[in-house]
């Protein structure tokens, strides 16, 4: 099963990293005609926090994870898969393990490519290791894992709709986080805030230079990371349970 999922995931990782590489190359070309700003100011030595790069890479991995998720992407082959002498849940866990490794690879690959881009643009000296860097690693991974787990849960009882559901989920994250900050009252506010519990963006804040201040849920980083990983794990467990119970 690991071999099977590896083949499915391998090309997606390559294509995804190729897109990131293309963006890096484009950045190099366009930078040849302009100067680089950081937070609206011209970049100078020591004003690009490493945490931002790490977290940005995590966000790319989150998008990748969301679209990779769904055990049911394998639906055409289920009659073959489910008649192998391997329990379905073990099969599902193997698949999820390979997917998580792929998400890590995309995260590391994106981070590496961004550093290459920085080197190419002569910005390496502007990077500085800030105290939030190690937290950003975990927050980025938690975001990616939560996105992946959400799609697993949402597709647990569907066949072959992973991509569509991932797209809708990702769009909903942005809508929900905006609604969460809007002056809604009563039941609607409660509903939006409840849904935002499952929204990775609600833990991050996406439009500010100061993420902590703008996050919808203002917990400390450790608690945020714990909640996000827990939701990711529960999502995967629901996905496995749905796969085990599914009929074709």
């Amino acid at each position: 099963m690991i071999q099977l999922e590896y083949l499915r995931v391998r090309w997606r990782v390559v294509i995804y990293l190729a897109i990131v590489l293309a963006a890096v190359v484009l950045a190099q070309i366009s930078a040849g005609h302009s100067h680089v700003d950081v937070n609206g100011q011209e970049a100078h030595a020591g004003n690009i926090p490493l945490a931002a790069v790490i977290f940005g890479s995590g966000f790319v991995a989150a998008a990748f994870g969301a679209f990779l998720a769904s055990l049911n992407a394998l639906d055409d082959t289920l009659p073959s898969l489910w008649t192998k002498p391997v329990p379905r849940e073990r099969m599902a866990i193997s698949i999820i393990a390979v997917d998580l490794l792929a998400i890590l690879t995309v995260w590391a690959g994106t981070f590496g490519l961004v550093l290459v881009a920085f080197a190419g643009l002569g910005l390496m000296s502007h990077l500085f290791v800030d105290p939030m860097a190690s937290g950003a690693v975990w927050l980025g991974l938690a975001t990616a894992f939560m996105c992946y787990g959400n799609v697993q849960a949402l597709t647990a009882w569907h066949q072959g709709k992973g991509g569509m559901i991932a797209g809708i989920a990702f769009g909903s994250y942005f809508v929900l986080v905006i609604l969460g900050g809007a002056p809604l009252q009563g039941l609607l506010h409660n509903l939006v805030m409840t849904l935002n519990i499952f929204n990775p963006l609600a833990y991050l804040g996406i439009s500010s230079h100061n993420d902590e201040a703008q996050a919808l849920f203002k917990f400390n980083d450790d608690l945020k990371i714990a909640i996000m990983f827990t939701i990711g794990i529960v999502g995967c467990a629901i996905g496995v349970f749905g796969w085990k119970r599914m009929e074709i």
Partner: peptide, 19 residues
């Protein structure tokens, strides 16, 4: 799952791994 250790199945439509 253990049943399938000695059971060969050919589905109506081939469900092969296309890659």
């Amino acid at each position: 799952a253990s049943t399938f250790a000695s059971l060969g199945f050919v589905p109506e439509r081939p469900a092969l791994f296309e890659k």
